[in-house]
């Protein structure tokens, strides 16, 4: 049921198809933001884009058990600053249940339900 991307969002999905997570950046302040848009939500001034490193930490998460297959929704705090919504992927339920706030995660791209390449995260093995 995903709608066609808004025009200003098209380049985000083109970048995603190429394996990159695009962030907006406020030209006036240099501050990155998410989701990208043509103006800065901080100043109303112009914005450009940067590519995220793909490194981040789990800010908050929840495993949904009522779905056909349990999944983990999360807010991931990117190294660049913004907190973004995503899923933390794992190979099985015990992997999902092992996720903790503060865990380091890394960006991966997989097709979503509609087949579009979409940014997700996976937990980096912690000691």
């Amino acid at each position: 049921m995903s709608a066609a991307p808004h025009d200003e969002q098209e380049k985000f999905w083109q970048a995603a198809a190429g394996g990159q997570l695009m962030l907006g950046r406020c030209i006036d302040t240099g501050k990155p933001f998410f989701y990208p848009r043509d103006h800065s939500p901080f100043t109303g001034g112009p914005a450009d884009t940067i590519t995220a490193s793909g490194r981040g930490t789990v800010y908050a998460h929840s495993v949904a058990y009522r779905a056909k297959e349990p999944y983990c929704i999360a807010y991931v705090q990117l190294e660049e600053g913004p907190i973004v919504m995503s899923n933390i992927l794992a190979d099985d339920l015990s992997g999902l249940e092992a996720i903790r706030i503060g865990d380091s995660v890394t960006l991966v791209f997989e097709a979503d339900a509609s087949g579009r390449m979409t940014p997700f995260f996976r937990r980096l093995t912690t000691g």
Binding site: S2, P5, F34, A60, S62, A67, M85, N87, R116
Partner: peptide, 20 residues
């Protein structure tokens, strides 16, 4: 488009608050 792929139903968004 930046959130729906991750299936934020009501319960799990509140779950995130509780975990935090």
């Amino acid at each position: 488009d930046f959130e729906a792929p991750y299936r934020p139903v009501v319960t799990n968004v509140y779950g995130m608050v509780a975990h935090r």
